[in-house]
């Protein structure tokens, strides 16, 4: 142990582990983006269901968001992963397709999307409620059907209110991808651990992985700030606490 950090271990080509880390990072990005997108879709549907749905739909959605927010993500990920893959392979076996193996990426996106969806539902519900009701009423008075009102008026008008929450959710999504290391999907955290285990340079690889996550967070922060400023243009500042 003459030097604390042997940076040649981070070289792109083997024997360096740079490539492994970057591939892991790319997997993390795919997971986060896919899960986030799925979560936003679930969130918009869930918010619409909670606000405009029937009593049963509302209560079911309430149960969904409550359970997701009360149970640790790690447990949910394990449960969804096993239940999801088990159910799917059983279903395809019953239909005569034989066993299907869901790859880790798809399963991971599903799992993160389901977790994100619960939080997104709350974000969008709050944002939609912040839209002045007269605007939605006006659209209805024009004779627009529900979906059209949603697309033309409600969704664009709620965007500025939803963006801070959406930015927050994206940060949570990027960090939640690390949990998939526990079920053996080789995203950035697990890649760093494998590299560290092989070279015994634990500090170096975990710090490098941390720097990659941090860079992602900081860059996303800047982008979200820009988008938010653009979405809020023309809006009277409501953030007078």
């Amino acid at each position: 142990m003459t030097t604390v950090f042997d940076f040649s271990l981070l070289a792109y080509d083997p024997p360096g582990w740079g490539r492994v880390l970057l591939v892991g990072f790319w997997h993390s990005l795919q997971l986060a983006a896919g899960g986030y997108f799925l979560g936003v879709v679930i969130g918009i549907l869930g918010a619409a269901g909670k606000l405009y749905g029937g009593k049963v739909v509302r209560d079911l959605l309430e149960v969904y968001t409550m359970v997701i927010r009360a149970v640790p993500e790690l447990v949910l990920i394990l449960l969804f992963y096993y239940v999801g893959t088990d159910l799917l392979s059983r279903a395809s076996a019953a239909l005569g397709f034989g066993r299907v193996d869901i790859d880790g990426l798809t399963a991971g996106i599903m799992v993160i999307g389901l977790v994100q969806g619960a939080y997104a539902t709350e974000v969008f519900r709050g944002a939609i409620r912040a839209v002045p009701f007269g605007q939605i009423e006006a659209a209805r008075a024009f004779g627009m059907p529900g979906a059209l009102v949603m697309r033309r008026v409600t969704l664009p008008a709620m965007l500025p209110h939803a963006l801070p929450g959406m930015a927050n959710l994206w940060m949570i999504a990027t960090k939640d991808t690390a949990l998939l290391a526990v079920i053996g999907f080789s995203e950035l955290t697990l890649a760093a651990r494998q590299a560290a285990g092989a070279t015994r340079a634990y500090l170096l690889f975990f710090l490098t992985a941390g720097a990659l996550y941090l860079a992602l967070t900081l860059i996303s922060n800047v982008i979200f700030k820009r988008v938010e400023r653009r979405a809020r243009r023309g809006l009277v500042s409501a953030r007078q606490a």
């Binding site: 991808t177 690390a178 949990l179 955290t189 651990r193 015994r200 941390g210 941090l214 900081l218």
Partner: peptide, 26 residues
């Protein structure tokens, strides 16, 4: 605050346990 909030807790935990643990042992 930025560093802790910008990286996954799992990674921090492994950094402390495996990383610092290995350093202490030396």
């Amino acid at each position: 605050c930025t560093i802790i909030r910008g990286t996954p807790l799992l990674l921090q935990m492994w950094l402390f346990y495996y990383g610092l643990g290995a350093v202490f042992a030396q």
